[in-house]
Amino acid sequence: MHRLLDELLLRVVHSPSVAERHDSAVIEVGEQRVAFTTDGYVVNPLFFPGGDIGSLAVFGTVNDLAMAGARPLALSLGLILEEGLPIETVGRIAASVQRACDAVGVRVVTGDTKVVDRGKGDGVYVTTSGIGLVPAGIRVSPARIAAGDAVLVNGDLGRHGVAILATREHLAFETTILSDCSPLVEPVKALLDAGVDVHCMRDLTRGGLSSALNELARAANVTITLDELCVPVSSEVSAACEILGLDPLYVACEGRMAVFVPEAQAARAVEILRTSGACPNAARVGSVEDRGGSHVVMRTCLGGRRVVDMLSGEQLPRIC
Protein backbone atom coordinates (compact mmCIF):
# COMPACT_ATOMS: atom_id res chain seq x y z
CA MET A 1 0.00 0.00 0.00
CA HIS A 2 2.71 2.43 1.01
CA ARG A 3 4.77 1.56 -2.03
CA LEU A 4 1.75 2.23 -4.26
CA LEU A 5 1.17 5.60 -2.59
CA ASP A 6 4.83 6.43 -2.98
CA GLU A 7 4.77 5.66 -6.68
CA LEU A 8 1.62 7.67 -7.32
CA LEU A 9 2.74 10.71 -5.37
CA LEU A 10 6.35 10.75 -6.50
CA ARG A 11 5.17 11.40 -10.06
CA VAL A 12 3.90 14.75 -8.82
CA VAL A 13 6.91 15.80 -6.79
CA HIS A 14 9.85 17.33 -8.64
CA SER A 15 12.93 17.57 -6.55
CA PRO A 16 16.38 16.05 -6.66
CA SER A 17 16.14 15.74 -2.87
CA VAL A 18 13.29 13.32 -3.22
CA ALA A 19 15.30 11.24 -5.64
CA GLU A 20 18.07 11.35 -3.05
CA ARG A 21 15.56 10.37 -0.34
CA HIS A 22 16.53 13.35 1.77
CA ASP A 23 14.34 14.81 4.50
CA SER A 24 14.09 18.36 3.11
CA ALA A 25 14.09 19.78 -0.36
CA VAL A 26 16.78 22.40 -0.97
CA ILE A 27 15.85 25.06 -3.50
CA GLU A 28 18.07 27.79 -4.84
CA VAL A 29 16.56 31.24 -4.48
CA GLY A 30 19.00 33.72 -5.96
CA GLU A 31 22.20 33.31 -3.94
CA GLN A 32 20.48 31.55 -1.10
CA ARG A 33 19.69 27.91 -0.63
CA VAL A 34 16.34 27.44 1.06
CA ALA A 35 15.43 24.16 2.72
CA PHE A 36 11.73 23.34 2.63
CA THR A 37 9.95 20.44 4.29
CA THR A 38 6.49 19.28 5.37
CA ASP A 39 5.18 16.56 7.63
CA GLY A 40 1.89 15.30 9.05
CA TYR A 41 1.65 14.27 12.68
CA VAL A 42 -0.66 11.59 13.96
CA VAL A 43 -0.03 10.35 17.48
CA ASN A 44 -2.06 8.45 20.02
CA PRO A 45 -2.20 9.50 22.81
CA LEU A 46 -2.03 13.25 22.08
CA PHE A 47 -0.16 13.86 25.35
CA PHE A 48 2.56 11.38 26.29
CA PRO A 49 5.39 11.31 28.84
CA GLY A 50 7.97 13.82 27.57
CA GLY A 51 5.87 15.57 24.92
CA ASP A 52 2.67 15.95 22.97
CA ILE A 53 1.47 16.35 19.40
CA GLY A 54 2.32 20.06 19.52
CA SER A 55 5.99 19.72 20.46
CA LEU A 56 6.28 16.68 18.19
CA ALA A 57 5.03 18.69 15.21
CA VAL A 58 7.45 21.56 15.83
CA PHE A 59 10.56 19.50 16.59
CA GLY A 60 9.86 16.96 13.87
CA THR A 61 9.78 19.56 11.12
CA VAL A 62 12.59 21.66 12.56
CA ASN A 63 14.70 18.49 12.72
CA ASP A 64 14.01 17.68 9.08
CA LEU A 65 15.37 21.14 8.19
CA ALA A 66 18.39 20.62 10.42
CA MET A 67 19.12 17.32 8.65
CA ALA A 68 19.77 19.31 5.47
CA GLY A 69 22.18 21.50 7.43
CA ALA A 70 19.64 24.36 7.43
CA ARG A 71 18.97 26.91 10.20
CA PRO A 72 15.18 26.83 10.71
CA LEU A 73 13.44 30.15 9.97
CA ALA A 74 9.70 29.75 10.05
CA LEU A 75 6.89 27.22 10.26
CA SER A 76 3.33 26.91 9.10
CA LEU A 77 0.85 25.10 11.31
CA GLY A 78 -2.21 23.26 9.99
CA LEU A 79 -4.69 21.66 12.36
CA ILE A 80 -7.51 19.27 11.58
CA LEU A 81 -9.68 19.00 14.68
CA GLU A 82 -12.36 16.49 15.41
CA GLU A 83 -15.73 17.94 16.39
CA GLY A 84 -16.17 17.65 20.14
CA LEU A 85 -12.48 17.97 21.02
CA PRO A 86 -12.39 20.04 24.25
CA ILE A 87 -11.23 23.59 23.59
CA GLU A 88 -8.93 23.26 26.57
CA THR A 89 -7.05 20.48 24.72
CA VAL A 90 -6.49 22.78 21.76
CA GLY A 91 -5.21 25.39 24.21
CA ARG A 92 -2.72 22.95 25.71
CA ILE A 93 -1.46 21.98 22.27
CA ALA A 94 -1.11 25.63 21.21
CA ALA A 95 0.85 26.45 24.35
CA SER A 96 3.12 23.50 23.70
CA VAL A 97 3.71 24.65 20.10
CA GLN A 98 4.67 28.08 21.43
CA ARG A 99 7.12 26.66 23.97
CA ALA A 100 8.70 24.42 21.37
CA CYS A 101 9.12 27.29 18.94
CA ASP A 102 10.68 29.45 21.64
CA ALA A 103 13.09 26.66 22.51
CA VAL A 104 14.31 26.58 18.93
CA GLY A 105 14.05 30.29 18.11
CA VAL A 106 11.61 29.79 15.25
CA ARG A 107 8.15 31.26 14.65
CA VAL A 108 4.85 29.98 13.28
CA VAL A 109 4.06 32.59 10.63
CA THR A 110 1.00 31.12 8.99
CA GLY A 111 -1.56 28.45 9.61
CA ASP A 112 -4.99 27.00 9.09
CA THR A 113 -7.61 25.14 11.09
CA LYS A 114 -10.40 22.87 9.92
CA VAL A 115 -12.99 20.95 11.92
CA VAL A 116 -14.22 17.55 10.78
CA ASP A 117 -17.16 15.52 12.03
CA ARG A 118 -16.78 13.45 15.13
CA GLY A 119 -15.42 10.05 14.29
CA LYS A 120 -13.50 11.29 11.28
CA GLY A 121 -10.22 12.07 13.01
CA ASP A 122 -8.07 10.92 15.92
CA GLY A 123 -8.81 14.05 17.96
CA VAL A 124 -6.22 16.18 16.20
CA TYR A 125 -4.07 15.85 13.09
CA VAL A 126 -1.29 18.40 12.73
CA THR A 127 0.70 19.34 9.66
CA THR A 128 3.72 21.60 9.86
CA SER A 129 5.78 22.89 7.00
CA GLY A 130 9.07 24.63 7.57
CA ILE A 131 11.66 26.70 5.77
CA GLY A 132 15.27 27.30 6.67
CA LEU A 133 18.48 28.61 5.17
CA VAL A 134 21.41 26.37 4.35
CA PRO A 135 24.67 28.24 5.06
CA ALA A 136 27.05 28.66 2.14
CA GLY A 137 29.48 25.83 1.68
CA ILE A 138 27.35 23.29 3.52
CA ARG A 139 26.20 20.32 1.50
CA VAL A 140 24.63 17.50 3.48
CA SER A 141 23.07 14.68 1.50
CA PRO A 142 22.96 10.88 1.12
CA ALA A 143 24.92 11.36 -2.11
CA ARG A 144 27.93 12.40 -0.01
CA ILE A 145 28.05 9.19 2.04
CA ALA A 146 31.41 7.59 1.31
CA ALA A 147 33.09 4.28 2.00
CA GLY A 148 35.02 4.57 5.25
CA ASP A 149 32.66 7.11 6.82
CA ALA A 150 31.95 6.71 10.51
CA VAL A 151 28.31 6.42 11.60
CA LEU A 152 27.41 8.25 14.81
CA VAL A 153 24.23 8.70 16.85
CA ASN A 154 23.63 11.59 19.23
CA GLY A 155 22.09 9.58 22.06
CA ASP A 156 20.41 6.43 23.31
CA LEU A 157 17.65 4.83 21.28
CA GLY A 158 14.02 3.87 21.58
CA ARG A 159 12.71 6.29 24.21
CA HIS A 160 9.84 7.72 22.20
CA GLY A 161 8.40 4.39 21.08
CA VAL A 162 8.56 2.91 24.57
CA ALA A 163 7.07 6.04 26.20
CA ILE A 164 4.11 5.82 23.81
CA LEU A 165 3.60 2.08 24.35
CA ALA A 166 3.71 2.51 28.11
CA THR A 167 0.54 4.59 27.90
CA ARG A 168 -1.37 2.14 25.74
CA GLU A 169 -3.94 0.33 27.78
CA HIS A 170 -3.37 -3.43 27.82
CA LEU A 171 0.38 -2.92 27.44
CA ALA A 172 0.71 -0.51 30.32
CA PHE A 173 3.71 -0.68 32.60
CA GLU A 174 5.21 1.62 35.20
CA THR A 175 8.26 3.36 33.95
CA THR A 176 10.09 6.67 34.15
CA ILE A 177 10.96 6.60 30.46
CA LEU A 178 10.18 9.90 28.73
CA SER A 179 9.99 10.43 25.01
CA ASP A 180 13.19 11.91 23.57
CA CYS A 181 11.09 14.38 21.58
CA SER A 182 13.51 17.32 21.25
CA PRO A 183 15.17 19.61 18.69
CA LEU A 184 18.43 18.66 16.97
CA VAL A 185 19.23 22.22 15.90
CA GLU A 186 21.92 22.91 18.49
CA PRO A 187 23.92 19.69 18.04
CA VAL A 188 23.83 20.13 14.24
CA LYS A 189 24.92 23.76 14.53
CA ALA A 190 27.73 22.76 16.88
CA LEU A 191 29.05 20.22 14.36
CA LEU A 192 28.85 22.58 11.38
CA ASP A 193 30.26 25.59 13.25
CA ALA A 194 33.22 23.46 14.37
CA GLY A 195 34.00 22.73 10.74
CA VAL A 196 33.19 19.02 10.88
CA ASP A 197 32.72 17.78 7.33
CA VAL A 198 29.28 16.27 7.85
CA HIS A 199 28.43 14.13 4.84
CA CYS A 200 24.90 13.19 5.78
CA MET A 201 22.43 13.29 8.62
CA ARG A 202 19.10 11.56 9.09
CA ASP A 203 16.74 11.94 12.03
CA LEU A 204 15.48 8.69 13.47
CA THR A 205 11.73 8.54 13.68
CA ARG A 206 9.35 5.72 12.95
CA GLY A 207 11.25 2.48 12.49
CA GLY A 208 14.15 3.72 14.58
CA LEU A 209 17.84 3.48 13.68
CA SER A 210 17.28 0.49 11.44
CA SER A 211 14.85 2.23 9.07
CA ALA A 212 16.97 5.35 8.75
CA LEU A 213 20.15 3.41 8.02
CA ASN A 214 18.46 1.00 5.61
CA GLU A 215 16.99 3.90 3.62
CA LEU A 216 20.38 5.60 3.46
CA ALA A 217 22.17 2.35 2.56
CA ARG A 218 19.83 1.98 -0.40
CA ALA A 219 20.04 5.64 -1.40
CA ALA A 220 23.85 5.65 -1.30
CA ASN A 221 24.30 2.05 -2.42
CA VAL A 222 26.60 1.07 0.43
CA THR A 223 26.78 -1.53 3.17
CA ILE A 224 26.69 -0.14 6.69
CA THR A 225 28.12 -2.20 9.54
CA LEU A 226 27.15 -1.68 13.17
CA ASP A 227 28.70 -2.91 16.40
CA GLU A 228 25.96 -3.88 18.86
CA LEU A 229 28.23 -3.20 21.83
CA CYS A 230 28.49 0.44 20.74
CA VAL A 231 24.79 1.11 20.14
CA PRO A 232 23.51 3.09 23.15
CA VAL A 233 20.26 1.85 24.68
CA SER A 234 19.33 2.72 28.28
CA SER A 235 18.71 -0.17 30.64
CA GLU A 236 15.07 0.83 31.12
CA VAL A 237 14.33 0.98 27.41
CA SER A 238 16.15 -2.32 27.04
CA ALA A 239 14.02 -3.89 29.78
CA ALA A 240 10.76 -2.58 28.31
CA CYS A 241 11.75 -3.97 24.91
CA GLU A 242 12.55 -7.36 26.45
CA ILE A 243 9.11 -7.54 28.08
CA LEU A 244 7.26 -6.68 24.89
CA GLY A 245 9.56 -8.63 22.61
CA LEU A 246 10.69 -5.54 20.70
CA ASP A 247 14.07 -4.88 19.12
CA PRO A 248 15.39 -1.42 20.19
CA LEU A 249 16.95 -0.92 16.75
CA TYR A 250 13.45 -0.61 15.32
CA VAL A 251 11.78 1.44 18.06
CA ALA A 252 10.83 5.03 17.24
CA CYS A 253 12.92 7.96 18.43
CA GLU A 254 12.11 11.67 18.12
CA GLY A 255 15.23 13.57 19.12
CA ARG A 256 17.91 11.34 17.66
CA MET A 257 19.88 11.41 14.47
CA ALA A 258 22.44 9.35 12.59
CA VAL A 259 25.43 11.39 11.40
CA PHE A 260 27.96 10.35 8.74
CA VAL A 261 31.42 11.94 8.98
CA PRO A 262 34.85 11.03 7.60
CA GLU A 263 36.67 8.48 9.77
CA ALA A 264 39.34 10.99 10.74
CA GLN A 265 36.78 13.34 12.29
CA ALA A 266 34.68 10.74 14.11
CA ALA A 267 36.13 11.07 17.60
CA ARG A 268 35.99 14.86 17.50
CA ALA A 269 32.41 14.81 16.23
CA VAL A 270 31.33 12.50 19.07
CA GLU A 271 32.99 14.84 21.57
CA ILE A 272 31.22 17.86 20.08
CA LEU A 273 27.86 16.08 20.24
CA ARG A 274 28.42 15.08 23.86
CA THR A 275 29.14 18.64 24.91
CA SER A 276 26.40 20.36 22.91
CA GLY A 277 22.69 19.88 23.48
CA ALA A 278 21.52 17.03 25.66
CA CYS A 279 23.66 14.27 24.09
CA PRO A 280 25.74 12.67 26.84
CA ASN A 281 25.35 9.21 25.24
CA ALA A 282 26.43 10.24 21.74
CA ALA A 283 28.47 7.41 20.27
CA ARG A 284 30.05 6.02 17.17
CA VAL A 285 27.99 2.98 16.26
CA GLY A 286 29.46 1.77 12.99
CA SER A 287 31.03 2.38 9.62
CA VAL A 288 30.26 2.54 5.95
CA GLU A 289 31.81 -0.36 4.06
CA ASP A 290 32.12 -0.52 0.33
CA ARG A 291 31.24 -4.11 -0.32
CA GLY A 292 28.48 -3.41 -2.74
CA GLY A 293 24.93 -4.22 -1.77
CA SER A 294 22.78 -1.77 0.10
CA HIS A 295 22.02 -3.14 3.51
CA VAL A 296 22.87 -2.93 7.17
CA VAL A 297 24.79 -5.65 9.01
CA MET A 298 25.50 -5.83 12.71
CA ARG A 299 28.20 -7.60 14.73
CA THR A 300 26.21 -8.86 17.73
CA CYS A 301 27.28 -8.68 21.36
CA LEU A 302 28.10 -12.36 21.13
CA GLY A 303 30.40 -11.89 18.16
CA GLY A 304 28.06 -13.31 15.53
CA ARG A 305 26.64 -11.39 12.58
CA ARG A 306 23.09 -10.56 11.66
CA VAL A 307 21.51 -8.52 8.93
CA VAL A 308 19.43 -5.63 10.28
CA ASP A 309 16.76 -5.77 7.65
CA MET A 310 14.18 -3.17 6.72
CA LEU A 311 11.08 -3.66 8.81
CA SER A 312 7.91 -4.53 6.94
CA GLY A 313 5.18 -2.64 8.73
CA GLU A 314 5.24 -1.56 12.35
CA GLN A 315 6.91 -3.65 15.01
CA LEU A 316 4.23 -5.29 17.19
CA PRO A 317 4.70 -6.65 20.71
CA ARG A 318 5.23 -10.37 20.53
CA ILE A 319 4.77 -13.27 22.86
CA CYS A 320 6.72 -15.90 20.90
Binding site: D247, R299, T300, C301, L302, G303, G304, R305, R306, C320
Partner: peptide
Protein backbone atom coordinates in the same frame (compact mmCIF):
# COMPACT_ATOMS: atom_id res chain seq x y z
CA UNK B 1 10.67 -23.18 19.91
CA UNK B 2 10.19 -20.00 17.89
CA UNK B 3 11.64 -17.98 20.74
CA UNK B 4 14.85 -19.99 20.43
CA UNK B 5 14.91 -19.40 16.67
CA UNK B 6 14.57 -15.71 17.39
CA UNK B 7 17.58 -15.76 19.71
CA UNK B 8 19.67 -17.70 17.20
CA UNK B 9 18.88 -15.14 14.52
CA UNK B 10 19.17 -12.05 16.69
CA UNK B 11 22.58 -12.92 18.13
CA UNK B 12 24.00 -14.51 15.00
CA UNK B 13 24.60 -17.79 16.80
CA UNK B 14 24.98 -19.84 13.61
CA UNK B 15 28.12 -17.83 12.88
CA UNK B 16 29.62 -19.24 16.06
Amino acid sequence: CGGQTHTIARFGIEDL
